[in-house]
Amino acid sequence: MTTRQRGWRVPAALVALSAIPLLAGTARLVELAGGPALIPADTRFAASPLPVVVHIVCAAVYALLGALQFAPGFRRRRPGWHRAAGRVLVVAGLGVTLSALWLTLFFPPQPDSGPLLFVLRVVFGSAMIASLGLGVAAIRRGDVATHRAWMTRAYAIALAAGTQAFTEGIGGAVLGHSPLALDASRGAAWVINLAVAEWAIRRHPVMGAASGTGRRPSVAVVVGERP
């Protein structure tokens, strides 16, 4: 396997991890557009589908475009693309988390969830907004290392929707299917993703963060809200 091929392993893994929530989101869009119900219907979204549509579309852009920001060779060969994509990703990331917070705060709760999931979504949604803001602030002052660290954390928080597909299954088998057990299983996805993100940040530090070259590599870098 060539170095270039190895450089695409992480983006490919991230796309694969996000495949389940993206497919579910696509099925939900089909249903809201008047098509057949490909997944179990959710009556909570019928009266006000706009935040759901915004969440799904922004999540798809954020997950797929964001994965490409983790291909180092691609970033180096196309710095202009990296900066332009980064600006799109900041907008998409804010769309993801603000719509997720709207759904959490103003829609009826998920039938199989409890107050713990409500708190977790508010906490991690707010943390994603903060991570995006800190990442943008860092790149504006030329601090590439801090920028990448915060954007990696934001992406990890968002990608919890994919990880939850595994933690819910494992947690359900071990802890049962009570609302508290399911909420804890879902919450584990955010913890796991952030732990992996911190490991990656420390394993691959960026040297010369504030080099003063005048080039501002833009944002690398979905919140765990399943449509």
Rank of each mutant, 00 (worst) to 15 (best):
A12P: 05
R140A: 11
L98Y: 01
V96C: 13
S99M: 02
G86W: 00
F107K: 09
V15P: 04
A161S: 14
F166T: 01
W8Q: 00
V223Q: 05
A71C: 09
Q110A: 13
A200V: 14
W81Y: 13
G212F: 09
E31C: 06
T152Y: 06
A71S: 09
S126K: 05
A63V: 01
V191M: 09
P11F: 08
Q69W: 02
G187K: 02
G224W: 01
R202H: 15
A210T: 15
S126Q: 09
P179L: 05
A197V: 12
G66K: 00
E225F: 12
A92N: 02
W102G: 01
R44T: 07
G171V: 13
F118I: 12
S218H: 07
A154L: 06
W190K: 05
R75G: 05
A46K: 12
S218T: 13
L68T: 15
I39Q: 08
H177F: 11
F45R: 11
A59F: 06
P11G: 09
A184K: 07
A33D: 12
G34L: 13
P111I: 04
V54D: 01
L105N: 10
T97D: 00
A12M: 11
V219I: 06
H82A: 14
S113W: 09
G171L: 04
F107P: 10
G176L: 11
A67V: 11
A12E: 08
L182R: 15
G172K: 11
N193E: 07
R75K: 13
G135L: 01
A173G: 14
F118T: 15
V52T: 13
R148C: 05
Q110K: 11
L23I: 14
I139D: 01
L159C: 06
A33C: 12
T146E: 15
L103C: 06
A71W: 11
M207L: 13
G7N: 12
R148P: 03
W150S: 00
L132T: 00
V53G: 04
A149V: 11
M128L: 12
L120D: 01
R202K: 12
A138S: 15
W102H: 14
I139S: 02
L103G: 06
L103N: 02
L22E: 02
A137G: 09
F74A: 05
R76E: 15
R28L: 08
Y62F: 14
A47Q: 14
A16L: 12
P205M: 04
Y155S: 09
S113I: 05
P49Q: 08
R141I: 05
A47C: 08
V54Q: 03
A184C: 11
R216V: 14
L180S: 14
V88H: 03
R186S: 02
V119G: 11
L175Y: 09
A13P: 07
L89A: 02
G25S: 10
W8P: 00
I20S: 09
